[in-house]
Design a binder for these strands. Structure first.
Lengths: 211, 211, 211, 211
DNA sequence: CATGAATGAGGGTTCATTCAT
DNA sequence: AATGAATGAACCCTCATTCAT
């Protein structure tokens, strides 16, 4: 019933929704172009062409090339966070080593899943491109948040003499690093085997620290 | 009059040696410039200036900018390999968990040491810069070699039902990834603590696989 | 139904009046924007924004950016003429050197007054901006008119062997030039002292030509 | 005798002279292009084309478009100063009204002469173009120097109760303004007549102040 | 008539690479 | 071999103007 739908949300479409859509088109195009050409050769003109619009339009939505990149990074990180939190949501707080194993497996799985989409883009976003100072702050904050979540989930299981914050950070960094390494790998890789070993690694690290 | 010409040329810098020296000067300059300006802004003119020579001369030793980068990457990887092998050379093949701990600690220490030199350069070399396909093959070969060495040192300690090759690869990749992560970190970091945890992580992973 | 339409239209803003008002709003906005940003950076979009309307609307009242500028120049010149004529209106035709001094002082005073408003705008209008050929003709005509007025006021006092037209032109040009120079000056200036000297200059020039 | 000439000045040519020549070519081209197209449309590419070189070369001699303009302004002002000083050099310090008349005539003549070259360029340089703050300072300093010179030449002739500095400044500004006005005039003008009146104006202004 | 998103030619500038000397 | 001036394609971005709604 298109008529009904139109009636139900009329005024919102013209300015707001259009703009949101255009922004999305630009970001999608940028993803494609950066993945294909890298950051330096991913020119704003190319992105505009990919988005089937003029450069001028692109610059009405983003003040410069870097801001597109920043938005892409932000979006990716946010999506990652949401994916992990979503995976955790389906699980109870672990009360024993077995529950912990399920949690770690879920997290690593979620991380790998969101990175599987476009490995090359991920590389461009997180390695090749310049990261403005402003963005770095956000990324650090995000990591701290992630460490906080990890500490909340793992902490209760740790012995009293173990620093939950440090442990959580090591686990977080390890998972992140290995998943990024997996993504960066330009050779074919047995993903499932990698995930298994990654989980094993983390659990082995945590085992002697459990209460 | 070849005799005359020979006389005019200083004895200790025959054509070959001179060229080697010039190449080295260029590479040193490139290291400085890339570390200071990044890859994109590290122009060939700047490198030539840093090397106190003309661009023209630079292009007589390297066909293009990328070839300088490639040489830098190659050199760094080779140095890394040599450093690790050197560290291992001082140790006996491990026969028990304790020996293994010493070996892992030595390797991680060596890795961190060669990366401590110039973190920024390392980042430029391994993240910011485009890596030509030709180089990728070499890097993969290097990794395989590293895995081979790891397998040789760890393998004899593993239980029969453990895949030494896979285990060695995971250990290698983990150490590499975490050290790179340490280097990439733009926030101040407790290096020693990081190394300790890194060693603990690897040993914990290996512990259940030991015979 | 023309009757209905008439009802809907507010009485005091029939098509014509409304348009005049909109034009005025645009011109006012242009003055502000040009004064603040200069000609090149005084974009039509900025002018429209300042006028609280869309660019599209602006282009319904002016065919292009230059036409706004031209209108601004025209208005300024007209205002100047009116101001000078107004100042003269309050004075009797001079019959002696004393009367002449009063007239010159009044004219210079009026000129300085209308330029004091917004020096920066004046600069943009008369120096920084391109002046289309069409406008030049009008400006020349205006100058000729001014010279004519000057000749009418000064002429009767001059000796028979003096060319009233040339004398009037020199006086006109001198006053104009010095006032513009005053406006253009980016260093603080003693305006009153400047005016005094300007008047003295003109009177000294005229003195030997008086009958 | 080309051989002799070559021998006489050998080493100076290669780097220094070439560069000076190239700079001059660029400035000449810029003069032509600015005069023809104005500042905004006088693009660096057009200037390079006019100078029969590539943009890249142009940017090896000037860091940006504005710097070319600044150099042009500086050169023009310097030339003007030199021309006026040159004209004065041929005259003795005035000791009476007659000598003063000769001096004023010489100065006005020199000013008009150096501006006769290219009126349109002069307009672009001094009206249409943005003048960086740095340049303004220099221009002010130049004016002050000019006022100083004028005071030195006129001062001794003035009555004790006359401010030589103020008088010199008014004279300087008047000559400058009227000559610029002459240049700016886009209508054909009787230059000689203008000069005569200009001189008469200045002398009439000075007459009552003479001792 | 109003709106403001869209257009795209064109501008200033950089930098890997070449080549005459 | 060395030099460094010269090259010019390509980049990012702006802004006067248009046009679908």
């Amino acid at each position: 019933m298109p008529t009904t739908e139109k009636r139900l949300r009329p005024r919102k479409t013209p300015r707001q929704l259009r703009a949101v859509d255009t922004r999305a088109r630009i970001l999608d195009a940028a993803r494609v172009v950066f993945a294909e050409h890298g950051y330096a050769a991913g020119t704003t003109n190319r992105i505009a062409a990919e988005a089937a619009m003029s450069v001028g339009s692109l610059y009405q939505y983003f003040p410069n090339k870097d801001s597109i990149l920043v938005e892409l990074v932000r979006t990716h990180v946010d999506d990652g966070g949401r994916a992990v939190l979503g995976a955790l949501d389906a699980l109870p707080r672990p009360t024993d080593a077995e529950g912990l194993a399920r949690v770690v497996r879920a997290v690593v799985g979620a991380m790998v899943a969101i990175h599987a989409d476009d490995r090359r883009l991920h590389q461009v976003l997180f390695e090749e491109s310049p990261r403005p100072a402003a963005l770095l702050g956000e990324l650090h904050a995000m990591e701290d948040t992630a460490v906080g979540v990890a500490a909340a989930w793992i902490g209760p299981l740790l012995r009293a003499d173990v620093d939950p914050e440090l442990t959580a950070r090591i686990v977080t960094v390890t998972i992140e690093s290995l998943v990024h390494r997996l993504v960066a790998s330009e050779r074919p890789l047995d993903v499932d085997g990698f995930v298994d070993e990654c989980v094993a690694l983390v659990l082995a690290y945590l085992a002697p620290k459990l209460r």
